[in-house]
């Protein structure tokens, strides 16, 4: 099962979304030095839907998600080819042309990210949420900022728990609260897409359930791309699912199809628990 697919393998299933397209990935390849980590990925990401990325460890899910907000730029040896566009604009255009129409700072404001391990800044809870709006100048005055912070914390269901201690350090919260704080921090800059890299893998089952509920609420307003190791979780939260294997996007389709009647044998094996 560990053999590589041949180089002109084409993704099975349906790479198109039924919703309106927000991001489009064409022929995306990633190399870390000599390692070809992501191979010829083509896929659409639609508004108001949760796309789950599944697959065994090291299959390229995280690499893929980090292409979508160019966080791979921070890795010296990483090289990304192909075309990824947000609202039809190439997000890597300043690779070729420095005066391109999309700069990386703006891109990351529109494509937010939540990480595997909750990583609140060592600042107060308030400052954690206010961080993004402050650097992007989203709020006219202090009052405006207070309202924004409150509404973000309300959206993630954290407001009632922390409203009396907004000045406490973000790191003083429990793991699940920290992760919700990180989500609040991400939505405070009003992104259009939120990337989540195994957002629940460091959390206990109750905190996990709260994050899953939150994901389902957030999809009304945002496009979500969620990497997960849990098939149950993927089937609970997602409308579409993509299966990665050794750098290849093997199959992408509606979650219903992927989890009940996958087309590719590799997907079948993974879903039925024979690998991974």
């Amino acid at each position: 099962m560990e053999e590589e697919l041949d180089s002109n393998f084409k993704t099975v299933g349906n790479i198109r979304t039924e919703k309106s397209v927000i991001m489009n990935v064409e022929d995306c390849n990633v190399y870390y030095g000599d390692v070809h980590a992501l191979k010829n990925v083509n896929m659409e990401i639609g508004k108001s839907e949760v796309l789950a990325l599944i697959g065994p460890s090291g299959c390229g899910k995280s690499t893929f998600i980090r292409c979508l907000n160019r966080l791979n730029d921070t890795i010296d040896i990483a090289r990304v080819t192909g075309k990824i566009s947000l609202d039809g604009k190439d997000i890597y255009s300043d690779y070729i042309n420095t005066s391109g129409n999309m700069d990386v700072v703006l891109l990351r404001a529109r494509v937010g990210m939540v990480f595997q391990k909750p990583n609140p800044f060592p600042k107060s809870i308030f400052e954690n949420v206010a961080y993004g709006p402050k650097i992007h100048g989203l709020c006219k005055d202090k009052n405006d900022l207070n309202n924004l912070v409150e509404s973000c914390l309300v959206k993630v269901g954290l407001w009632d728990e922390v409203k009396d201690r907004l000045e406490d350090s973000g790191t003083s919260l429990s793991g699940g609260q920290q992760q919700r704080l990180c989500i609040a921090r991400a939505i405070a800059v009003q992104p259009e897409v939120i990337l989540m890299d195994e957002p629940c893998s460091a959390l206990d089952p109750i905190a996990t359930e709260r994050i899953e509920d939150l994901i389902s609420e957030l999809k009304q307003n945002y496009a979500l791309v969620v990497v997960t190791h849990s098939m149950q979780q993927a089937s609970r939260i997602s409308q579409r699912a993509a299966y990665f294997h050794m750098g290849n996007l093997v199959e992408v389709d509606s979650s219903n199809k992927i989890f009940n009647d996958p087309s590719h044998p590799l997907t079948t094996n993974y879903i039925s628990g024979r690998i991974g």
């Binding site: 907000n69 966080l71 921070t74 700072v105 703006l106 891109l107 990351r108 404001a109 937010g112 990210m113 990480f115 391990k117 990583n119 609140p120 800044f121 060592p122 600042k123 961080y131 993004g132 650097i135 992007h136 990180c182 921090r185 991400a186 800059v189």
Partner: peptide, 26 residues
């Protein structure tokens, strides 16, 4: 931790903003 840098960059902060507001305080 690198996760602090990723968190700040992921919110659209530039490198110098990340250094000034997250890394140096930490």
């Amino acid at each position: 931790p690198q996760s602090m840098r990723d968190g700040s960059l992921g919110l659209g902060a530039t490198k110098s903003e990340t250094i000034k507001k997250v890394i140096l305080p930490a």
